[in-house]
Lab assay of single mutants.
Amino acid sequence: MIVFVRFNSSHGFPVEVDSDTSIFQLKEVVAKRQGVPADQLRVIFAGKELRNDWTVQNCDLDQQSIVHIVQRPWRKGQEMNATGGDDPRNAAGGCEREPQSLTRVDLSSSVLPGDSVGLAVILHTDSRKDSPPAGSPAGRSIYNSFYVYCKGPCQRVQPGKLRVQCSTCRQATLTLTQGPSCWDDVLIPNRMSGECQSPHCPGTSAEFFFKCGAHPTSDKETSVALHLIATNSRNITCITCTDVRSPVLVFQCNSRHVICLDCFHLYCVTRLNDRQFVHDPQLGYSLPCVAGCPNSLIKELHHFRILGEEQYNRYQQYGAEECVLQMGGVLCPRPGCGAGLLPEPDQRKVTCEGGNGLGCGFAFCRECKEAYHEGECSAVFEASGTTTQAYRVDERAAEQARWEAASKETIKKTTKPCPRCHVPVEKNGGCMHMKCPQPQCRLEWCWNCGCEWNRVCMGDHWFDV
């Protein structure tokens, strides 16, 4: 396979590697080409510095992935760790964990309700045991953590790749202090920090972006993250068709209702045909949960890209028209025109101005929308079919299609509260000796007794199943 190397943020060049090629071997190839010592090179990928003893497969490097290699003399205490030698983080029983690669970060837990604080980093599902597709590297999971809308060759929703760059020099040479644990960490600028490894760059702020994971991409090709779309790892039924499908869209209502993408497309087109989208002054033209839940309008309007190009163009047109109407304007009634106009409040005669090729020149009556006339309008008909009709959803289907309910059931079956801080902690095999993952707590306690870890627990039921 081919990976592209950008040395000291210059133009990239291809390097041929195998899945079992080590990072140090990659350094040696680059060092020979650039005429520099291999031990002064640092390989940066997806916000993480890659260790010498890791392989291309370990690092989730795919065909035509772009890695950054910078030349920086080692500072005291760094060289041993980078070589894969006596790194205290690798000691058996050590409590410190390697910062998780962005290629394996899962933010789907952050669609849980606000009262489930902490689960994004504490609760991990076991539903990723799908067998890898044919042709994928051994052991590589097909679980997708992110979804994007690819405006490039795909023109559809695709699995996405999370990447990070330095907000100062805009190069992907920043190593994160810690990985993101929720969508806010990724979507809110300057929320996460790190250290830029580019020479002479003092940058410390992280800037995240997404790429389409279905095809090789260049540095400049980015895609918009659709953070309401998630892999259906909890096997929730769709609120409309009641099938279990994946991926799904999880509405931001209190129940976190789930809808499959085909039904979401149908829901949007139906509402669009009836012009029953909601115009929100802050958000724009949007839709609420299909069950009509309060405070559930979709905030990231790129989710409506699921409509496809033709329907999305209609959505944008109707949204612009609705904006004009909300501002007190009118639409030209001549067939084939429909231009938005903003006449004076007491102006009865409205002319669709033909300047700049935008208007048709038609003069019409503001009251009856017919060709302009003197005197009273002959008839004014009330528009028919403008009443909002509820999208029919079966109550039982709505009850079963809740992301929140599956989460709470998982928590109930696989977790116990920490005796000190009461945060839910998952036990997935292993011994009875637990350690609270909350940095402010870190209590060592017994899963069996529910009390602080002691010699009695150690001698009596340390390794009970």
Results as ranks from 00 to 15, higher is better:
Val3Cys: 05
His11Ser: 05
Asp18Gly: 09
Ser19Leu: 08
Thr21Gly: 06
Thr21Pro: 00
Gln25Val: 04
Leu26Cys: 01
Pro37Asp: 13
Asp39Leu: 03
Ile44Gly: 01
Gly47Phe: 03
Arg51Glu: 11
Gln64Trp: 08
Ile66His: 08
Val70Asp: 03
Gly77Pro: 13
Gln78Lys: 10
Asn81Tyr: 15
Gly85Lys: 11
Asp87Ile: 12
Gly94Arg: 12
Gln100Cys: 09
Gln100Glu: 12
Thr103Phe: 07
Val105Thr: 14
Val105Met: 14
Leu107Gln: 14
Ser109Cys: 06
Ser116Thr: 11
Leu119Asp: 15
Val121Ala: 14
Pro132Lys: 10
Gly139Trp: 10
Tyr147Leu: 03
Tyr149Leu: 07
Tyr149Trp: 13
Val157Asn: 02
Gln158Cys: 11
Thr168Gln: 08
Ala172Arg: 09
Thr175Gly: 07
Leu176Met: 09
Pro180Lys: 00
Ser181Ile: 06
Asp185Arg: 01
Met192Asn: 03
Thr204Gly: 14
Ser205Val: 15
Ser205Gly: 09
Glu207Pro: 00
Lys211Asp: 14
Gly213Pro: 04
Thr222Arg: 10
Ser223Asp: 10
Leu226Asp: 02
Thr231Leu: 06
Thr237Trp: 03
Arg245Lys: 13
Asn254Lys: 14
His257Lys: 00
Cys260Ser: 00
Leu261Asp: 01
Leu266Met: 12
Leu266Ile: 15
Cys268Phe: 06
Cys268Thr: 06
Gln276Met: 12
Val278Met: 10
His279Tyr: 14
Tyr285Arg: 02
Cys293Asp: 01
Glu300Val: 05
Ile306Trp: 03
Ile306Leu: 10
Leu307Phe: 04
Gly308Val: 04
Glu309Val: 08
Tyr315Cys: 08
Tyr318Gly: 00
Gly319Ile: 05
Gln326Asn: 10
Gly329His: 03
Cys332Thr: 03
Pro333Asn: 03
Gly336Tyr: 09
Thr351Ser: 11
Leu358Val: 15
Gly361Trp: 08
Gly361Thr: 06
Tyr372His: 07
Val393Cys: 08
Arg396Ser: 14
Ala405Glu: 15
Thr410Met: 11
Thr414Asn: 08
Pro417Val: 15
His422Glu: 08
Asn428Ala: 15
Gly430Trp: 06
Pro437Gly: 08
Arg442Tyr: 07
Glu444Trp: 05
Cys446Met: 01
Cys446His: 00
Cys449Asn: 01
Asn454Pro: 01
Arg455Met: 15
Trp462Ser: 15
